[in-house]
Design a binder for these strands. Structure first.
Lengths: 344, 344
DNA sequence: TTGTAGGCGTTATCAC
DNA sequence: GTGATAACGCCTACAA
């Protein structure tokens, strides 16, 4: 007998045929109760565990989904991954994970996933031009999460970025701010594009003239945030409030504000994105738009699995699912100071 | 022809036999250069991709390793996971991930990994009594990382917890502190045990009398940190410095210190564990013992894969690999204030 | 050097 | 209701 027992071992032990054991285990068709008992006893006795590999090969489906993340290593994407994990677990799938924030790595993982015959893929895309991913997307369902380029998949689970930023703007406007700046990342990813557009739209909705110099984009990093903040805050006509679209840049903005000797929220109101711990522990705790990271992950996993199991009715599915952000008001936002040059 | 081309399709296309194609692709044995070219051309033409499932079934090894994490969702374990991912990628393995911080989920994942025939497993154990994990560990190599119960595996990659805490103590002692408190988690996990022991040993090494009331343990959470800090700081004979063994509790300790109106480091020096962003963004930035999270993950992955590929020489391997922490001095530690009651 | 045959562990199709 | 038999895609003898 081999190292681990297989169906034929159980069959021999129980004195029945291999297919009978298989049928008992899968509870398919009727099996004589007595034989069934004998089989189950033998399974217990031998400690039989089914081999998913053989099952997968035979059934032409692995029960594995891929998760390819190009996200940064901050908390948001980690929590999102938990959501996917749990959705998979709840539906009997396993997750093989890859992390690739460059096109090269994304391509490597696309090949790997393809080789492992994953049944579907959740992806936070890093680029818009991965030929392997495109090919994969034609063979199996792919769900984009967090960001989209619209190229790979028919389905996506995204934040309602426009509403999120609009909510931030509304909050600041209600406090009395009129000169509001936006700091965002300069890479053409959907989140950044939508957040910027949402900002512009909402400012116009409120009838505020839009000053191009109040929209600053820079690198998607802490350093980018530092540079953008310096640029924005050293204008002749400074803003009284700033919205920052990414957590990474937010950290840089905070550092810059400190180094300029400005006080939050006395001199400047600040709204960030993503409710991480440091945002809560800071002095003062920051007002942010919180993303439902776990829910986004779970929803992406669930949508993918439904998509896998339902490939016929595919067309009926929604293509894009938007989840709302939540404004969490802390102490980094307050009414603007009276500006002497304007009030006198 | 089936949906995706297989070896026989390539063979037919190239006008050779199946094993020839296989041999060309695996670059094993000599193949006539002309046939080889024809085969490679056909592979390209058909877009053939090997099916790992069949390969795995045949070879009795999957090239998949499991990663079971019972870690929290803070940054440390996420970075560690990146290390494992990259070690796997570098050696041609894929990673299927599970997250289970309870015994129940740990058992579920152990079964899943077993079913997928993973070649090995890296685990941050959540408990000491998972029968499925124990069984799995007898069949495939298992490496514990971050913490150990010593029950599942012969190998582990851990922080040098004793030295880490000793370094923190030394730093505080050099600043002039004598009354140093320790706040640690009250669950019997190796990290907490070792850190506490390291603290006690080092205090005794310096010849300072150890006061039991200066060693406070509480729940492994922010709330636990709050409670522990209140308990420690409201003693008759208060400490001038505190070492906190976990990031979660550290957040609670900071909150408690603030609510008590104490100033860091004027009234109290503070050293934490784990160099996360919030620790850097805080006012003042905290002095911490930084863990080499990525390296720990990579090392665990590498050790596991070596272990998988080298099952014969297994015995020669080291059982425990300790990686050093690094003291990062920021502004939460300073000499203690002169205590009037003692100096006058 | 190349091809043929058999098997990895499972499920599906058919007789019985 | 049950048991042979074939097949999933690949690799490894062994024979040609």
């Amino acid at each position: 007998m081999s190292r681990t027992p297989k169906l034929s071992d159980v069959a021999q032990h129980a004195g029945v045929s291999v297919p009978t054991v298989s049928r008992v285990l899968r509870e398919v068709r009727n099996v004589d109760p007595e034989l069934k008992d004998r089989v189950l006893l033998s399974v217990k006795a031998l400690g039989y565990q089914p081999n998913r590999l053989a099952k997968s090969l035979r059934e032409q489906r692995t029960g594995i989904i891929g998760y390819l993340s190009a996200g940064d290593i901050a908390t948001f994407h980690h929590i999102l991954a938990q959501g996917i994990q749990n959705a998979a677990l709840d539906h009997g799938y396993a997750v093989v994970t890859g992390h690739g924030s460059t096109l090269e790595r994304e391509m490597m993982y696309a090949k790997i996933f393809s080789g492992y015959q994953v049944d579907g893929l959740v992806v936070i895309p890093s680029s818009t031009g991965d030929p392997y991913l495109e090919e994969l997307a034609q063979q199996i369902p792919v769900v984009e999460v967090d960001r989209t380029f619209g190229a790979y998949s028919r389905h996506s689970v995204l934040l309602d970025n426009r509403s999120a930023v609009a909510g931030a703007v509304d909050h600041l406007v209600a406090l009395g701010h009129r000169q509001i700046g936006l700091i965002y990342g300069n890479i053409p990813v959907s989140t950044e594009v939508e957040r910027k557009e949402g900002f512009v739209d909402r400012m116009q909705h409120h009838g505020f003239p839009l000053r191009p110099e109040h929209l600053i984009s820079d690198g998607f990093s802490e350093e980018g945030g530092v540079r953008a903040a310096h640029q924005l805050l050293q204008l002749g006509e400074p803003v009284t409030a700033v919205v920052v679209t990414t957590n990474e840049m937010l950290a840089g903005v905070v550092r810059a504000i400190r180094s300029l000797g400005l006080s939050i929220p006395r001199d400047l109101s600040l709204i960030g994105m993503d409710d991480t711990r440091w945002v809560q522990m800071m002095e003062p705790p920051l007002t942010v738009m919180a993303q439902p990271a776990y829910e986004m992950g779970y929803e992406a996993g669930r949508l993918l699995i439904r998509s896998i199991q339902d490939q016929d009715h595919e067309e009926a599915f929604p293509r894009v699912r938007r989840l709302p952000a939540q404004l969490i008001i802390r102490q980094s936002t307050a009414p603007p100071r009276e500006v002497p040059s304007m009030s006198t």
